[in-house]
């Protein structure tokens, strides 16, 4: 498990979310959310279902277009560019370029089922345009793909198809795939929610290892023990708003808001102590 990512620099991966709004039809799912995640920081977003956690995550790589507010990464607007006094929406090609700096891991893995584990990992580096980088050759991408599979402990399953892997293994391949473009930021959308309880830890261990690598991580999860271990900042969301945020110690053992308190009283086991 060698750190094969390009040298972690603390200046990469500052995420600033300012007053973001988003509606689906008549329902407003994000009601002006602002959040800053420092370079190399680990933010864990928790909250009840339907609180807008996943939607917020998906606005960061412009999978969801925001209705109001804006998001910047290292000071650069996501999905838009400033021309004069207007924000012009970027063309798809430019958006795809921005997304290569933001890796995403999905709840349902979304591995490409007709490609092997290695092909899944090595596909994007060959075809995606990355700002300031040349595309990799097939051979180089394969070599790098094997390194990444090794890093998540799956080098020997490189030629297996996703359906031949367990859920935990699939999710680890998905993490390797997200790492293949050396992103500044990694987004995790409930990465363990579709897994059997016994498979959860093998995925969390990989994420834990990433938390020290200098990549900015933003994680939506229901695993409170994991959140306590790994987070710099825990963000509690409810009904489209950030209710409270702080260090794990503050949020879990001394929540200020009654809504936070009542949520944790339901999800934390009685023996859960900091």
């Amino acid at each position: 498990m060698t750190a094969t990512l390009s040298a972690p620099t603390a200046t990469r991966g500052l995420v600033e979310i300012t007053g973001v709004r988003k509606s689906f039809g008549a329902t407003e799912v994000l009601k002006g959310v602002s959040l800053t995640v420092e370079p190399g920081g680990v933010a864990v977003i928790v909250g009840p279902s339907g609180s807008g956690k996943s939607t917020l995550l998906r606005t960061i790589n412009h999978l969801e277009k925001v209705d109001g507010g804006h998001i910047t990464i290292d000071g650069q607007l996501v999905g838009y560019e400033i021309r004069g006094d207007r924000l012009h929406e970027l063309r798809e090609k430019e958006i795809l370029k921005q997304r290569t700096e933001i890796g995403m891991v999905f709840q349902n893995f979304n591995l490409f089922p007709h490609l092997t584990a290695l092909e899944n990992v090595a596909e994007a580096p060959v075809v995606a345009h990355q700002p300031g980088k040349a595309r990799r050759s097939r051979e180089e991408a394969r070599r790098r793909g094997l390194e990444l599979l090794d890093r998540v402990g799956l080098k020997d399953r490189a030629d297996a198809y996703p359906r031949q892997l367990s859920g935990g293994q699939q999710q680890r391949v998905a993490i390797a795939r997200a790492l293949a473009l050396d992103p500044k930021i990694l987004l995790f959308d409930e990465p363990t929610s579709a897994l059997d309880p016994e498979l959860v830890n093998e995925v969390l261990d990989v994420i834990r290892e990433l938390a020290t690598s200098g990549t900015t991580l933003i994680i939506v999860t229901h695993e409170m023990g994991f959140a306590r271990d790994v987070a710099d900042t825990v963000v509690f969301m409810d009904q489209g708003q950030i209710v409270e945020q702080g260090t794990p110690r503050d949020i879990f053992s001394n929540p200020q808001e009654p809504r936070t308190r009542s949520f944790f009283s339901k999800v934390l086991e009685p023996a859960f102590n900091i």
Binding site: N61, L63, K93, L96, K97, R99, T100, I102, G103, M104, F106, N110, L111, F112, E123, A124, V127, A128, H129, Q130, R177, A178, L181
Partner: peptide, 11 residues
């Protein structure tokens, strides 16, 4: 599948 491909910046 489309979302995953888009998130990876695949043209």
């Amino acid at each position: 599948q489309l979302e995953a491909a888009a998130a990876l910046g695949i043209p």
